[in-house]
């Protein structure tokens, strides 16, 4: 099965593991991810204003390019997913934005939100199936207590993202169980880590990610997995000493599928 793939800027530099293990795992699962040619950065945050057109265009280009290639578009980074999905929704539902974006880009064929944007986790759940994934696992992660960290971008706004129940999601927990590990459910798993504000207010990000770590730790988590490079950064930069290592979910996936190079994600070396 072939999918178009949008890695995003951070996956080419600071979050190479997120990208590399997603590709290796997809290959092992018989899925072909074809990186979109000449994709541009999504901008990291969804431009909410009704009159922001230019800031949405890089996303529209990626979406239109996937449409031209005839494949669904797979995303991996939570932020990219959020931006692409929300812009796609605008292109389908907001006539003003759709008209202006198309007028600006002058494409051969007008784009109206036709591309289906799916997150890598949705690919695992809906295309591969967690049951099938469990069968493909070569190294079950037995005995590990893993907490899913969704953050805010993967799920919200729920009416647009439509990945899972935004207040009580299960997709990553089901993923963890499919890999043979124990999923730790904790209430702060869908609350913000502090996001981009970390750049100028470390204190705020420290408090926010601290609340997440505290909640996970309290519920018995030994490690946390996430899909977002900025979440990983903020959780890792927390200075309150919770001692819960944070990984990309694809690292664990690759380990369980037996395609990971180097050591296991067991907290050592973090």
């Amino acid at each position: 099965m072939i999918f178009s793939y949008y890695p995003g800027c951070t996956l080419k530099t600071k979050a190479k593991e997120l990208d590399r293990y997603a590709r290796l795992s997809a290959e092992a699962l018989g899925i072909t991810l074809e990186e979109l040619p000449e994709w541009q950065c999504c901008g990291g945050v969804y431009p909410m204003a009704k009159d922001e057109i230019a800031t949405k265009l890089s996303s529209v280009r990626a979406l239109a390019s996937a449409k031209a290639l005839g494949h669904d578009l797979v995303t991996l980074c939570s932020a990219c997913h959020n931006v692409l999905k929300q812009v796609n929704h605008d292109m389908a539902a907001d006539e003003n934005i759709r008209t202006k974006a198309n007028n600006y880009m002058q494409p051969d064929e007008a784009y109206g939100g036709e591309t289906k944007v799916i997150h890598y986790l949705e690919l695992l759940r809906d295309t591969v199936g967690f049951g099938e994934l469990a069968k493909q696992v070569k190294n079950p992660l037995k005995g590990r207590k893993i907490a899913a960290y969704y953050g805010c971008l993967l799920l919200r706004p729920g009416s647009v993202l439509q990945m899972d129940n935004p207040e009580n999601p299960t997709i990553i927990e089901d993923f963890i169980r499919a890999l043979g590990a124990e999923a730790v459910v904790y209430p702060m798993r869908n609350e913000c880590c502090g996001g981009y504000v970390t750049l100028e207010n470390r204190e705020l990000a420290n408090r926010r990610s601290g609340a997440v770590l505290e909640s996970a730790k309290e519920c018995g988590a030994e490690m946390i997995i996430t899909a977002c490079p900025l979440c990983l950064y903020n959780l890792n930069k927390n200075t309150d000493g919770y001692d819960v290592p944070v990984y990309y979910f694809t690292e664990l996936l690759a380990e369980a599928l037996g395609v990971k190079e180097g050591g296991a994600c067991d907290g050592a070396g973090q």
């Binding site: 995003g8 951070t10 530099t13 600071k14 950065c41 901008g43 990291g44 980074c77 932020a79 950064y233």
Partner: peptide, 21 residues
């Protein structure tokens, strides 16, 4: 101000997002 706040782990995503905001 970026060079002052930069550290080696900081993802691009943070800088891009902050500039957008």
């Amino acid at each position: 101000t970026i060079p002052e706040v930069l550290d080696e782990d900081l993802p691009q995503q943070a800088i891009v997002s902050a500039f957008r905001k």
